[in-house]
C-alpha cells in the first residue's frame, strides 16, 4: 500500500481516537472517554451516510430516520426487558432484551427495512426532489415518534442500566468505548472494501455517468437502493449505540437537525473521503466541547465555520491537510 499523505493522516486520526481515551483512562478522566465514545459513534453514523452520499452521490437529508430507528430499537427492547413486560407473546414469548448483540441485530434489520422502503420510493426521483423527499420521510417518522405515547412520545424513553455485552462490563466507560471503537474500525474496513469491490465501482460509475452504466447492462436504481440500504443499516447501528451511550432515546434523534448534523460530520471531514466522518465527528465534538464552554450560542460559530468550508475549502479538513488530488468522491 502506498503511503500517501491522506492515508498517513487516516492512520494518525484513528490512532489518536484510540490514544486520547486510553490516556484519559490512565489519568482517570471518564468524561473525556465519554466524549471519545460519542465521537466514535457519531463517526460510525457518518460512515454509514458516506456510503450513500460520498460513494453513491445520494444526498439524503433523512438519515436521522435510521439513526432514530436504531435508537428506538434499543429503547423498546431494553424498556420491555427492564419492566418484565413481554413485547409479544406470539409466535413465541419475547420479553425484550438487554443484550447488545441482539439489540444491534434488531436495529440493523429494522433500519435496513426502513431504508428499503424509503429508498425504493425516494429513488424514483433524483436531484432536489430526492433531498426533499428523504427529508420528508425522516420528518414523518419524527412526528410518528412524538405521537407514539406507548414509548414515551415527546419525552422519550429512559433506560436505567446500560445494556450488556457478553464478557464485558459496559458500564465501565473505557470498555464501552472499546465496543464503539471496534465497531467503527470494522465499519471503516467494510466501507473501504465496499468502495473497491465491483459493486462499489459500479455504484461510483452510476454517480458519474448513469447512461454509460446502463449501457453496460447494470441497473443504477438497484445499485443505489442497495447502497442506500447498507448506508441506512450502518447508521441504524450507530443509533443503537448512541442511545445506549446516553441510556436515553427521544424523537430528537429522528429530527432533521440530526440528519443535518450527520451530514456535517461527513462534510467537515471531506466528502467522499473514507475517513472523512471520523475527522468530522471528532472536530464536531471538539468544537462543541471547546466553543460550548465559551458561549451558549456556539452553533453560530459552527454555522460560520461550515459556511466557510462549503464556500472556500471544499475538501473539508482532510482536503485542507492532505491536498485534494486523492479524494475518491
Amino acid at each position: 500500500m502506498m503511503l500517501t499523505r491522506e492515508s498517513l493522516l487516516n492512520w494518525a486520526m484513528i490512532a489518536a481516537l484510540l490514544i486520547v481515551p486510553l490516556a484519559a483512562w490512565s489519568l482517570d478522566e471518564p468524561f473525556i472517554i465519554t466524549l471519545a465514545t460519542k465521537a466514535a459513534i457519531l463517526a460510525l453514523a457518518g460512515v454509514g451516510l458516506n456510503i450513500a452520499l460520498g460513494l453513491g452521490g445520494l444526498i439524503s437529508l433523512g438519515h436521522a430516520a435510521f439513526f432514530g430507528i436504531g435508537g428506538y430499537a434499543m429503547g423498546i427492547l431494553a424498556a420491555h426487558a427492564q419492566n418484565y413486560e413481554p413485547l409479544f407473546e406470539w409466535p413465541f414469548l419475547f420479553e425484550g432484551s438487554n443484550q447488545m448483540p441482539l439489540i444491534w441485530l434488531v436495529a440493523v434489520v429494522f433500519s435496513a427495512c426502513a431504508a428499503l422502503v424509503i429508498g425504493a420510493l425516494s429513488l424514483r426521483t433524483s436531484g432536489v426532489y430526492f433531498i426533499m423527499i428523504t427529508l420528508a420521510f425522516g420528518q414523518m417518522l419524527y412526528y410518528f415518534a412524538i405521537s407514539w405515547s406507548a414509548y414515551g412520545g415527546e419525552d422519550g424513553l429512559s433506560i436505567w442500566v446500560r445494556n450488556e455485552f457478553p464478557g464485558l462490563n459496559t458500564l465501565d466507560p473505557i470498555q464501552f468505548f472499546a465496543i464503539a471503537y471496534v465497531i467503527l474500525c470494522l465499519a471503516l474496513v467494510f466501507a473501504a472494501r465496499l468502495a473497491r469491490s465491483p459493486f462499489g465501482l459500479a455504484l461510483a460509475a452510476a454517480r458519474q455517468n448513469e447512461d454509460r452504466v446502463q449501457a453496460v447492462g447494470l441497473t443504477p436504481f438497484t445499485l443505489r437502493l442497495t447502497a442506500f440500504v447498507i448506508s441506512g443499516a450502518i447508521t441504524g447501528l450507530a443509533g443503537a449505540l448512541f442511545a445506549d451511550l446516553n441510556r436515553f432515546v427521544s424523537p430528537t434523534m429522528l429530527s432533521w437537525h440530526t440528519s443535518g448534523e450527520i451530514m456535517i460530520f461527513v462534510i467537515l471531514g471531506g466528502v467522499g473521503r473514507l475517513y472523512g466522518p471520523v475527522a468530522g465527528a471528532a472536530l464536531y465534538i471538539l468544537l462543541e466541547h471547546l466553543l460550548g464552554g465559551i458561549s451558549d450560542y456556539w452553533q453560530i460559530f459552527l454555522g460560520v465555520l461550515l459556511l466557510l468550508i462549503v464556500l472556500f475549502a471544499r475538501g473539508g479538513l482532510i482536503g485542507a491537510i492532505a491536498g485534494r488530488e486523492k479524494a475518491h468522491g
Binding site: L302, L306, L307
Partner: peptide
C-alpha cells in the same frame, strides 16, 4: 445541491 444544502443549513444555525 449538496453545497447548497450545507450552506443553507449553516445559515439556519446562524
Amino acid at each position: 445541491h449538496l453545497d447548497q444544502v450545507l450552506a443553507t443549513f449553516a445559515l439556519i444555525l446562524i
